[in-house]
Design a protein around this nucleic acid. Structure first.
Lengths: 218, 218
DNA sequence: GTTTAAAATCAGGAAATTCCCTATTATGTT
DNA sequence: AACATAATAGGGAATTTCCTGATTTTAAAC
C-alpha cells in the first residue's frame, strides 16, 4: 500500500511538475490536487490522504489556516509545508498550526521524498535551513523563558518607531517626532532588527508593509 | 536537432519538476538551469540555448533585467517568461525587455510546450489571460494616446543597483556583486535618489516594489 | 566622422550615521 | 520583594553617506 498524497499549490504547472516527479517514486501516489485552501479541505474530506503537500501562499484560505483545520479535524492526515519563505514567522505559524514538516521550495526533490517518508512514519521533518531557525527560537525561549510571540514580536513603542523609519524618516527626525533622544531611537531600531532578524531598512520596510505598519504609498 | 532550453527559476524543486516534464517531450532538451539572474546570464553565454524559460521574481537580478541583457547581447536567444503575476506592468515590462512569450505559472504544462514550439519558430506566444491584458492596454493606448509606462527614469544599470539595494544588500555587497568599486555604487545610488527625488532606502524600497524591481518577500 | 550627450566608472575627505556595549528608570507580574 | 520587560540614553569605534570632481565608454545626432 503506497503513501497517498494530496498536492495543494495554486500553480498548476508546479503541481504537474511535482506529480510527475513523485510518479517516479516507489510507494508514493498522488491521489488528488487542489489549487486553493478551500479546495484542499474538500479533497481531504473526500480522499483522506496520508499526506498533504501544501504551499503556504494560496488564495482564499491560506496554507496555514488550511493546515490548522486539517490537523484538528483529520488527525491522521499529515501536512508538509512547501514554502518560498524561510521567514521565522511563517515557520512558527505553520508548525503551531500542526504541520509535520516544513520545506523550502528551493530544496532538492530528494528532500521532499525524504520528508514524505519521515512524516509518514510519524516523524517530523524540517529543511536544514529551517532547522536552524527553529533551534534558534527554541534556545531564545529557553534563555528567556517566555514564549516567542510569533505574531507580534514588537512592542507598541517599537511599532511607533518602525513606522516613520519605513516612511523614510531619519533617526533624528523620529527622535524629534517622539520627543526623545536620537540614541533612544537607535536602541529601538537595533532592538527591532534583532527581534525580526532583519538588518536593513529595505527588509524592515517590506516587513512593515506586510504587517500593515506602513503602506506602499510614498 | 532538438530545441535547447535553459531553465531559470529560483526554486530548485520547480526547476526539477519542469525538467522532468520537458524530458517527456520529443525534440526538447533542458541543457542547463540557473537560479538567479546573474547565473542565467552566465549559462546563456556558456550554452547559447535556443530558449530561456525564465521566472520573473528572482533575487539579485530579476527576470526583466536579465531578459533585457540577454535579448540585447544574444539576439538569437529567445526568452519565455513564466510568471506568477498577471499584473499588466510585469507583462508590459517583460515584453518591452524583449521576451518572446509570457505564461502564467498557473497554466497547463501543454501550454508551455506549445509556447516553446511557437517561440522557437520565431512567433510570439502569450497566455490567453495575458493576451486580454495586452489587447486591453493596446486599445487604451489607441484611445488615449498616452503611453502606459510613464517614462522610466532609471537606466538599466541603475535598476541593477536598485534591486539588491532594496533587498537589503549593503553598498559593499552590491559592489562585489557587480564587480565594481563601492564608490561606483554610491554614485549610482545618489543618482537614483536624485532622479526619483527619494532620499531614503525605505522610499526606494516602496518604489521598487511598485515598479516590480523587487518583491515583498524577504 | 566628428560633436554631443548620457551612462558608467572611481576617488578624496568631511560629515553623519550606525553599531556595540553599558546603564538607568519606570512598570508591571508573580 | 524579586524579576523581567520596556523605554530611555551616552560613549566611542566603525562604517556609511554626502559632496565635489574627474575619466572613460557608449550611443545618438548631426
Amino acid at each position: 500500500m503506497s503513501i497517498r498524497i494530496l498536492l495543494a499549490d495554486d500553480h498548476k504547472i508546479v503541481r504537474m511538475g511535482l506529480r510527475t516527479l513523485l510518479k517516479s517514486q516507489q510507494g508514493m501516489e498522488v491521489i488528488a490536487e487542489a489549487q486553493d485552501g478551500r479546495g484542499t479541505l474538500q479533497k481531504v474530506k473526500e480522499y483522506l490522504p496520508d499526506i498533504v503537500v501544501m504551499d503556504i501562499g494560496m488564495p482564499e484560505l491560506n496554507g496555514i489556516e488550511t493546515t490548522r483545520i486539517i490537523t484538528s479535524e483529520f488527525s491522521h492526515v499529515k501536512v508538509i509545508a512547501l514554502s518560498m519563505h524561510s521567514d521565522r514567522r511563517f515557520v512558527a505559524r505553520m508548525l503551531e498550526a500542526g504541520a509535520s514538516g516544513y520545506l523550502l521550495k528551493d530544496c532538492a526533490f530528494e528532500e521532499l521524498v525524504h520528508a514524505i517518508k519521515a512524516v509518514y512514519n510519524n516523524q517530523l521533518y524540517l529543511s536544514p535551513d529551517i532547522t536552524g531557525i527553529v533551534i534558534g527560537d527554541y534556545l531564545r525561549q529557553l534563555s528567556s523563558r517566555t514564549p516567542l510571540a510569533p505574531f507580534n514580536p514588537l512592542t507598541p513603542r517599537e511599532r511607533e518607531v518602525l513606522q516613520p523609519l519605513t516612511e523614510g524618516k531619519t533617526t533624528k527626525q523620529i527622535a524629534a517626532l517622539l520627543h526623545v533622544s536620537a540614541k533612544t531611537i537607535e536602541t529601538h531600531r537595533s532592538q527591532i532588527m534583532e527581534k525580526l532578524n532583519l538588518h536593513s531598512v529595505a527588509e524592515l520596510t517590506k516587513y512593515a508593509i506586510r504587517e500593515g505598519i506602513t503602506t506602499l504609498d510614498i
